[in-house]
Design a protein around this nucleic acid. Structure first.
Ligand SMILES: [Mn+2]
Ligand SMILES: [Mn+2]
Ligand SMILES: [Mn+2]
Ligand SMILES: [Mn+2]
Lengths: 220, 220
DNA sequence: ACAATAAGTTAGATTAGCCTAACAATAAAA
DNA sequence: TTTTATTGTTAGGCTAATCTAACTTATTGT
């Protein structure tokens, strides 16, 4: 088993892969906030231990073993987040940091029980899919709210960032997963939109926000 | 804040102090399973950082700050154990190892919520007191089952060891906290006892086991 | 095609936490 | 009171994970 540190590297590679971003040393360096030489050195070690494949100046690839470990960490992270929200009643904005620690807990018993108590959830509190024990995730086919045309409605299904500030912002606006949002108007100048949802009308959302809201179009 | 490693040293010193054992480098070394020179070196560092007081060839003492940190770790450990048993339904024999990891989680929110969900428990699943936020513990005044005379009864209140094998043994014997045990007979030769409890009669317990069962005498 | 920029590499160093081997001090036993 | 056993100390070394400074290779824009 790799150390917690190595688990974090594998997880970071896995996430970049999940988002279709290119996996360079510098991308990794930014993601885990560590100097490039450090990443360079660590990736070599991960390679020696069979978790990744890396050649000078080429992108980093997870081996099957590496992907298995990484998906297991991600699974534990997302199960933990779900547990913290559903069973313990914490807010979706406060669970990520705690899950960063919980994901490294090494106990099948603990996570099996969480999985069972939550009735085998497929998504975490931010709508992100939870990998199963074999690392498989249900594919999600959402589009960004920015892609929805005026007059159309869409249901919020997931977020593509889980920064505390963003989640607190959504709380303040009373937007949650499942909220049906109607695009009333689009301002061409700054690409902001006017939306309506639940009892709220004429709410303005910037493009930055819309980009991060992953929705499913409503066909009426 | 000290590192997880340092937290473990402080916790070990705290536990030895709690059991009234003398706190030497070699005792610590055995407790945390690390060489004596390593402990020696670490204790010096803990001293520099103000967590302990140590002079060559003298016993180690926690500073107020050190005791505060240590009791907080112990609090988190025991709260975690209680949560794993009471809320998650794990057995008292499987929670210690998981709690060894959970105790280092750094989230007031997480542990406050656990404390709240458990309705502010005073004892962990093994009957050991949980320090409050100020490090205070309710004093327990139990005696070992070995000290109970034939004909007398006593209620099991706590254990002074929580090795998995011991707890599994107690499960097999159907002995739990709260079980009222009557001493029927004492064998002088090997100090084993014959006891009765619930529907069970003529159960033989060795002195080794009785020593570890902390009870409260029943006055009838 | 070439200069500028971005990305990756190498070397050398540091800190935390651990070890063993050899030695010194204290406490316990004879 | 010596001897023996326990306990503590010092010295020297190791690995994991990090850093900065200086340099090299690749990519990009003109
Ligand atoms: Mn998260
Ligand atoms: Mn999440
Ligand atoms: Mn425990
Ligand atoms: Mn316990």
């Amino acid at each position: 088993m790799p150390s917690d540190t190595k688990e974090n590297y594998l997880k970071a590679i896995y996430s970049l892969e999940e988002n279709g971003e290119k996996i360079s040393l510098s991308a990794l360096s930014k993601r885990i906030d560590v100097s490039i030489p450090t990443v360079n050195n660590m990736v070599k070690r991960l390679q020696e231990e069979g978790w990744v494949i890396y050649e000078k100046y080429k992108p980093i690839i997870l081996t099957d073993e590496g992907r298995k470990v990484a998906s297991h960490i991600v699974r534990k992270h997302r199960l933990a987040e779900m547990f913290l929200v559903e069973t313990m009643g914490l807010g979706w904005e406060e669970v990520h940091d705690i899950a960063e620690d919980l994901e490294h807990i090494n106990s099948e018993t603990f996570f099996n029980r969480i999985d069972e108590m939550l009735d085998y959830p497929k998504f975490d509190p931010h709508g992100t899919p939870i990998p199963d024990k074999n690392g498989k995730t249900v594919s999600q086919n959402y589009e960004s709210l920015s892609a929805i045309e005026p007059g159309q409605s869409a249901v919020l299904r997931a977020l593509d960032h889980e920064q505390k500030e963003f989640l607190v912002f959504l709380n303040k606006k009373n937007i949650a997963l499942g909220t049906e949002i109607k695009i009333e108007e689009k301002e061409p100048f700054d690409e902001s939109v006017v939306v309506a949802y639940d009892q709220f009308k004429n709410v303005v959302l910037t493009k930055d926000v819309c980009d991060k809201l992953l929705v499913e179009k409503v066909h009426k």
